[in-house]
Amino acid sequence: MRPFSYQRASDPDMAVQALGAAATNTPLTKATAQPLAGGTTLIDLMKLDVMRPTAIVDINPLAHAWSAIEPGSDALRLGALAKMSDVAAHAEVQRSYPVIADSLKLAASAQLRNMATLGGNVMQRTRCNYFRDVSYENCNKRNPGSGCAAMDGVNRMHAVLGTSDQCIATYPGDFAQALIALDATVEITGKAGTRSMPFAQLHKAPGSTPDIETALQPGDLISAFSISGRWPRSVYLKARDRQSYEFALSSAAIALDVQDGTIRDARVALGGVATVPWRAREAEALLKGHRFDEALAQRVADAAFADARGRRHNSFKIALGKRVVARALQQAVTMEI
């Protein structure tokens, strides 16, 4: 860890100013000023010398304004500084958005969920071992243009969707899959005030710039997430090596609107297998207007992974991911609501 200054944000403007003051054209992840919320990722990466901010702006004082859990009659608004554990335990979230509650409940450990915030969670950085170990020079995410050690290295945990020839690092979170499935909107507070964008546009696939992970600029803070509609028929299924406190090998966030046995609307998002929160829109299209059966589930799962590309140790994720999607669909169709 390297020395850094620490200041507490008294209000959003001050936080935005402090974070945006030294902004250059560097990507957000390399900005010299970084916001601190739960700290469960940032502190880790600073200890590992992966992130080297010189200024830390503690945004926890903004929690009084930014941590509300507000279910409306046909919508949900979640403050970005709400704790993962509080949202997972919220009765209305559990009733009307089980995919959100479950994605949060199945993430990390209880201790981490008590510290970590929703905004910080979606910004969590990859668990790629080569990214997290600075003794490897070749990481395009850390050192643009240096190559990718994971491509032909130990890559069991890596992505099969949304990869590029520059980076195959997996987006590690769970909650983001629920957000992208439910067409969430993310509210951003920045230098020009507050703006909104579809959550699906927040994360950037690695392409030729894996160091650019999101659409945020220095000085931007996520202040809230909004979801319209209610999604009581929704599930989050997560397959992993151990039963708790472990990242997904493959996960699926599914939300369905089924009327009289016919699927009116369907949302399919994938986790543990892609470089960014992943929406499988082609797969969704196959569901709409149809009645559910196992053959359909299989076609949907195949479509979701049609573009998947495995490498030496992670090819199993394609077959696994399909089975997880099929199983999650079945679970969503049969769940009692």
Binding site: R127, N129, A149, D152, V154, M157, R242
Partner: peptide, 25 residues
Amino acid sequence: TEIDERNARYVNDNLADYLVPVNAD
């Protein structure tokens, strides 16, 4: 412990990636 055979280095050298059981297991 996973070994990167190209360079004979241990890859998952931390307790998040070197898995041991948690209570739920």
